[in-house]
Design a protein around this nucleic acid. Structure first.
Length: 474
DNA sequence: TTTTGAGTTGTTCGA
DNA sequence: GTCGAACAACTCAAA
């Protein structure tokens, strides 16, 4: 009898290195690695298209690392895991914790059910630097402001941050037939040209994650602090999708950048990892984060859903070149530079006055790094309805942001090629260009490139008025 | 309990 | 062209 066989249930931790659940399971004996696609039965937060594409490749990579033994299923984990335990006489299950409210609830139920069958479940921290319940104010309640949260975590971190672990050295895999299906059977990757486009920009899977980390450390980190603001400069880490799917753990990343030593770039990057933690922290303590305003005054904000405008924003046809460049980068690569994310989000919420949730939904579908915690927290931050939010008067101007952060237009021209020949002076405001210049650049406004959807000054004023009314009448 | 200082990423206007 | 102030009022965190 193989009572020493355990299940390692992979979820958002698609890696062998620094995987505490896998390590613990391997320590005990033979391991049956399991993955379950279970989002389709939960009515909310079905994976977006870009996430599914990434997951497809990440699973293939993981399965290769596991010598093809990954047992893949589709359906309800609460039923599949107990069934596997029964069929294969398995009495222990290991996994790394997830923090989405529906997953917390589901895992709790599963744990209880397993207990009834005399199966032990062990969960570990494989996705965060700091467990959300470990960082609290002196009165025991959760922080709502990033800076004090981060300071506290950093103070507490001294000596408590665990070292990342290697992959289990003598991983012994369970090889009996376990009735699973293949990665292809999950149909995560539609046969669509869009997939091939996105795939060109990434190396998905654990190996790709480790390579991306090396690249970041070797050639990007030294210019991170200032370079990260310029979308045409390669200075951001681009680690977000790898972290989201757990191809890398934040501990691995934290340790590798720490080896560089104390440095402005390192500190700035670490605080970005801190923001990732803070998003998970907020999601854990405020589970309604993805759907409702943390500041309840905003429930009265006069959002106005103009479907046509939303569509133009999604397609990168707003008439504001920097916004359109960002939205097209998103569509073509499954990613958008961080500064540009803030600009397009600010434009949707504060110039088009469309509810942040419509923006969050679109990002959810298109981003390869779509992450419930980060996406929700960031949209609330931009919209001003988060607890630790941008001041109401902070409205990005897509023209001046372009002039400041994409001076020579390299980023904008790359994604909005129809403006290729427009001189820098008018690149971010083509409607201001004299007709002779437009003609020279081969642009007929309204045909080759749209007129601006809204007037910046007017829409800005409207947003400020609405925000003033919403906050003063509380 | 009260008080004090502070809160990721901006824009505009007037001197 | 550059620079500093104004832009609301509130809530949060800690002393």
């Amino acid at each position: 009898m193989s009572t020493r066989t355990s299940i390692c249930w992979f979820r958002q931790d698609l890696r062998l290195n620094d995987n505490p659940a896998l390590l613990a399971a391997a320590d005990r004996g033979e391991v049956l690695p399991v993955f379950i696609l279970d989002d389709e039965n939960s009515d909310k937060w079905r994976l977006g298209a870009a996430s599914r594409l990434w997951l497809h490749h990440s699973l293939k990579s993981l399965n290769r690392s596991l010598e093809g033994t990954l047992s893949i299923h589709r359906g309800r984990a609460e039923e599949i895991i107990p069934r596997l335990c029964r069929d294969h006489h398995i009495d222990q299950v290991f996994w790394n914790r997830c923090y989405e409210p529906w997953r917390i609830e589901r895992d709790g139920k599963l744990k209880n059910r397993l207990k009834l069958h005399a199966v032990e479940a062990h969960s570990f921290n494989g996705s965060l630097l700091w467990e959300p319940w470990q960082i609290l104010k002196k009165d025991g309640s959760p922080y709502k402001i990033f800076t004090p949260f981060y300071k506290r975590a950093r103070t507490q971190e001294q000596g408590t941050l665990e070292e990342p672990q290697q992959a289990p050295p003598n991983l012994s895999l369970y090889r009996a037939d376990h009735g699973g299906i293949t990665v292809e059977d999950l149909r995560l990757r539609p046969d669509h040209p869009w997939c091939r486009k996105v795939e060109r920009h990434w190396r998905m899977g654990e190996e790709g994650g480790l390579l991306a980390l090396d690249t970041f450390l070797e050639s990007r980190l030294s210019n991170y602090r200032t370079g990260r603001d310029f979308p045409a400069v390669s200075a951001t880490s681009r680690l977000s999708p790898h972290l989201h799917f757990g191809e890398l753990s934040p501990r691995q990343v934290w340790q590798r950048v720490s080896e560089v030593g104390y440095d402005d770039n390192v500190e700035t990057f670490k605080s970005e990892l801190g923001w990732r933690e803070f998003s998970y922290y907020l999601l854990y303590h405020f589970p309604h984060l993805p759907t409702s305003n943390l500041k309840p005054q905003f429930d009265r904000f006069p959002w106005w859903l103009n479907q046509k405008w939303l569509h133009c924003w999604q397609q990168g046809m707003t008439g504001y070149p920097l916004v359109d460049a960002g939205m097209r980068e998103l569509w073509q690569t499954g990613y958008m530079h961080n500064r540009v994310r803030m600009i397009v989000a600010s434009f949707l919420v504060k110039n088009l006055l469309i509810h942040w949730r419509h923006g969050a939904d679109w990002f959810w579908d298109c981003l390869v790094d779509a992450d419930l915690a980060s996406n929700s927290a960031s949209w609330q931050w931009v919209a001003g309805c988060g607890t630790d939010a941008a001041p109401f008067f902070r409205i990005f101007n897509p023209v001046s942001q372009g002039q400041k952060f994409d001076q020579n237009g390299a980023y904008t021209r790359r994604f909005v090629p129809e403006l290729q020949d427009l001189p820098d002076k008018f690149l971010f405001c083509p409607w201001k260009a004299p007709s002779s210049i437009l003609e020279q650049a081969g642009i007929r406004l309204g045909e080759d490139y749209p007129y601006p959807l809204v007037d910046l000054q007017q829409s800005r004023k409207k947003a400020l008025d609405s925000l003033k009314r919403v906050s003063s009448s509380s």
